[in-house]
Design a protein around this nucleic acid. Sequence first.
RNA 1: UGGGGAUUAGUAUAGCGGUAGUACGUCUGACUCUGGAUCAGAUAGCCGAGGUUCGAAUCCUCGAUCCCCAGCCA
Length: 577
Amino acid sequence: MTTNAPASTDFVREIVAQDLRTGKHGGRVATRFPPEPNGYLHIGHAKSICLNFGIAQENGGVCHLRFDDTNPAREEVEYVESIQEDVRWLGFDWGAHLYYASDYFEQLCQYAVQLIQDGKAYVCSLSPQEIREYRGTLTEPGRDSPHRTRTVAENLGLFQRMRAGEFPEGAHVLRAKIDMASPNLNLRDPVLYRILHAQHHRTGGVWCIYPTYDYAHPISDAIEGITHSICTLEFEAHRPLYDWLLEQLPVPSHPQQIEFARLNVSYTLMSKRKLLQLVEQKHVSGWDDPRMPTISGLRRRGYSPEALRDFCERIGVAKRDNVVEFALLEHCLREDLNRRAARVMAVLHPLRVIIDNYPEHQVEQVDSVNNPEDSSMGSHTIPFSRVLYIDREDFQEDPPKGFFRLSPGREVRLKDAFYVTCVGVVKDEQTGAPMELHCTYDPETRGGRSADGRVVRGTLHWVSAAHSLPAEVRLYDHLFLSADPGADDGGAGFTQGLNPSSLEVLTQCRVEPSLAGAAPQNCYQFLRLGYFCVDPDTAGERLVFNRAVSLRDTWARVQKEQQGQPSKGQSGRAGRV
RNA sequence: UGGGGAUUAGUAUAGCGGUAGUACGUCUGACUCUGGAUCAGAUAGCCGAGGUUCGAAUCCUCGAUCCCCAGCCA
């Protein structure tokens, strides 16, 4: 991974630079990425990862990976493993700095005892319902809990017994004693510890009281010597509590919390809860379904770490709510793959073509450049023979204006091979659909060039029928119909907005023989179609490809225009194919 | 009606009192053995109203709109 100079600057980096200048944290920079292991990472996390690890890298600092595992009810090892894999795959390294909030449970508990001893925390035995009632509302102050005045000794005893497992869940909580009349609801005696009789994925059954995020996070940061604790906007109102706790306790440092706006991307969702629901209700095949905005989904789809990092750099970091266009993500991928992906030919909807004047059993190898953008990638050969396949949409019997592919009587170039002219069409008697084309070829145009300088408008991709390999190709479109699927739902009904045609499976595809044995995750440009990535479902003879992103397609746009559909707006629709 | 944030082209983001820039998108054109890529050009913006100032996107005042907070979630 490249150690990039601070090419981009944003308000967070400005704060860090300023602190470095003034020596606020002794010239140190330590950040942390603190995921809760309750789901897979998505591209919104990628933004945070790039920010946190990026800032550390740029300033010779460190970035910790810390699992915020304070709620055993929803956390699993599967998630902690996938998270590590995804961060690593993205290109970042936490070195020895892998931590868990659960590493600090004992310390956290001791600090809680200290708060009690200092009269700054108390055990409250109100029910959850009552606590809510006592909290007041946005406009009315809350009321003190009747247990707020318990003695230190009483609190100590109760807390001890909470820890010892003497009470059922919900019987008591430990609360900070701050101010029930605070206009900031987070300061109205927030809960610090609750009783949870659950098996924790790391500590097992050792604990039955667990710290809340509000309590565990600032202290974990402080213990690790984090200098800048970067989080998203919704925690802004929690910052006074973050600071309050660190001021009360003899912690080794006082990190600075900085909030930035989380990423939203059009046509998709970033809520882990909703993504989980898509997985559990089988709307997608799993967390790594190529339509998912998860890092594992994007990886399977064919996105490279480079493209994702580039994207994260381009979207910037600020404090206003935002929805980044999916088109920008696609642009980043195209730019990366254009530079690196080998060009091959594949026919998605095969239409048989017979070259009438080509010798029956002859086969010849034509040369094809692997990547016109990079000559060092060399070339390979492709077999040409009498019977070929081209894509159905490259032929029209009655072509509209502007169509310069194959049609009766017209000559086109078969990429890297010969000029061919359509001399006949065999049609389905029922439907009238073309079933087979007859063409003649000009032997003088081998390699796709003619000596007489005659021009052909169209160049088509093709494969040799006998030599090509069968393949399954999966085409993807946006998971949701709406550009902002998270906006207009009350919570549960968001699956109504799912795009019913977000996945199209093509099973009759033919690809050139050089693709035999292509390894999963390898990406190719299928000439004139798009970038396709070998899916892990590929095994043995069975080739499966995912379309990562289509090529820009001006003809598809023109066609839509002709059909009266404005082509403006969002790209990424299944324009071609 | 409480508190905390935010507001610059379609989208994202710069601008930190001195001609409002960049990227993506969209549209033109050139070029092309990918209707790709590339290249050239175009498009379009400071939430509003007052004020301070020689000069305001930037400072002040008032207003508008949007987001977050009433989990023993994070």
